[in-house]
């Protein structure tokens, strides 16, 4: 891009930044007004978890989280629609293989721990899922073509697991309970843990699949079926 133009844009953007900072200053100087924090903390004992962020994510604003998992699903479906994955890396040298053999189980165990601890301390499905995903990244770097993921048909189930279970719980609660995603107080803890587990698995496998970067290689049986479908 033209140097003068980029300078001009720079000046305009700086002015915008100054304006925004001034606006922010006037906002902070004014009365803070009502905030959601006291309310969120007050309702915490009824939410089924004792960690406020998890309560917001999976109870008060669970609908947002459901949709966020759908965004992740849209991304991986978009990636798959673009064609098969590029070929993987060469099988790694002994050092990386040994490292992968240590790190991957460690990441999975830590992920499980983070998932469990999310109910009452920092942690939860996203952090745990990210760890699972990074385990997949390391596996792919070490030469595993599919980043430790199963075949295509199973991957399809894995990436929908999070939204699927979430939505199913929500709809069942709407039909038999108080309303969509309205957990009964008694079972809230277990429902949240169930949803979080499915979400962790889905997030982990989706992130790993995104790193693979394309449609998984078809297994023998399903490839025949999809040919039928294509015909």
């Amino acid at each position: 891009m033209n140097r003068d133009l980029s300078l001009l844009i720079g000046i305009l953007v700086s002015l915008l930044a100054l304006l925004l900072i001034w606006i922010f200053y006037t906002t902070l100087a004014a009365d803070p007004g009502p905030r959601l924090a006291p309310l969120a903390l007050e309702q915490l004992p009824n939410s089924g978890v004792s960690h406020p962020v998890t309560a917001v994510l999976l109870n008060y604003r669970a609908y947002d989280t459901l949709l966020e998992l759908a965004v992740l699903l849209a991304a991986i479906l978009g990636i798959w629609s673009l064609g098969p994955a590029p070929s993987g890396f060469q099988p790694a040298g002994p050092a990386l293989t040994v490292l992968a053999n240590w790190i991957v189980p460690l990441a999975i165990i830590t992920g499980g721990y983070l998932l469990w601890v999310g109910g009452h301390a920092p942690g939860g499905a996203f952090q745990a899922g990210a760890l699972l995903g990074s385990a997949g990244v390391i596996l792919r770097l070490a030469g595993h073509e599919r980043a430790g993921l199963p075949n295509e048909a199973a991957q399809r189930w894995l990436v929908v697991a999070g939204v699927g279970l979430f939505l199913l719980v929500g709809l069942l609660l709407a039909v038999f309970g108080a309303g969509f995603l309205t957990y009964p107080k008694a079972s809230a803890k277990w429902l949240i843990l169930l949803i979080e587990t499915a979400a962790t698995i889905a997030i982990g496998s989706t992130l790993a699949a995104a790193y693979v970067g394309g449609r998984p290689p078809l297994a023998q049986s399903t490839s025949a079926a999809s040919k039928d479908l294509g015909a």
Partner: peptide, 19 residues
């Protein structure tokens, strides 16, 4: 909720059961 939940459910089903 249904106009949002039903297409979402549809998306999940067609991903899981491509045939």
């Amino acid at each position: 909720v249904l106009p949002i939940a039903l297409p979402l459910l549809g998306a999940l089903l067609v991903v899981a059961l491509p045939r």
